[in-house]
């Protein structure tokens, strides 16, 4: 099994952070993993993305061009990358941030994809998890793919978020579960 994941949105939405959690969780699970950020001027408030590969065998190209899973946190990212998701692929989008018309267009044009629209930013803001939309979406990704166990997710959060920020660790766990159970 080789899962290519692309996470995309604006700089500041926690794109690279979500990728980091995912890649550390894969590492904890004993998988081959790679994480590649887009780096450069686009990180100053523009679009930002990161490629994550979680695989059973050594990874060839760490650059994800045809993602099995696309997680989009803004409209330009959805429109830019959805055409590259192969049939049967999974698309998870933040419907608070993405125009409803763009989501409808994506669903109409790609009937061979599983597209989930979750109002992640709204859910985060309404549940004292401001800034946690990325993790809510990640939760949905984990719920749909079964790629990562709760235990490995927790270990990854503890690796990336320092112990001095226990509140944030708790929030990440809560956000992940909220996303995973979102119908």
């Amino acid at each position: 099994m080789n899962t290519n994941i692309l996470i995309a949105g604006f700089g500041g939405q926690g794109i690279l952070f979500a990728g980091k959690i995912l890649v550390y969780a894969g590492l904890m699970a004993g998988k081959e993993v790679s994480w590649l950020p887009s780096y450069g001027p686009e990180m100053r408030g523009g679009t930002c993305n990161c490629s994550v590969v979680i695989a059973d065998d050594p990874i060839g190209s760490p650059l994800v061009t045809n993602p099995d899973v696309l997680m989009a946190l803004n409209t330009p990212s959805l429109e830019k990358f959805i055409d590259f998701v192969p049939a049967g692929g999974l698309v998870i989008v933040d419907s608070t941030m993405i125009d409803a018309s763009a989501i409808e267009a994506a669903k109409a044009a790609h009937t061979d994809l599983k597209i989930f629209a979750i109002p992640a930013t709204e859910l985060a803001d309404g549940n004292d998890l401001a800034g946690g939309a990325n993790i809510i979406l990640l939760g949905k990704l984990i719920g749909e793919t079964g790629l990562i166990s709760d235990e490995h997710f927790k270990a990854a959060v503890e690796k990336v978020v320092p112990a001095s920020k226990q509140k944030l660790r708790d929030n990440d766990m809560r956000a992940m579960k909220m996303g995973a159970s979102y119908a």
Binding site: E32, V33, L36, P37, P62
Partner: peptide, 10 residues
Amino acid sequence: DGLLGQMMEP
């Protein structure tokens, strides 16, 4: 190169 420098791997 920039790809190898910026990417994370175990």
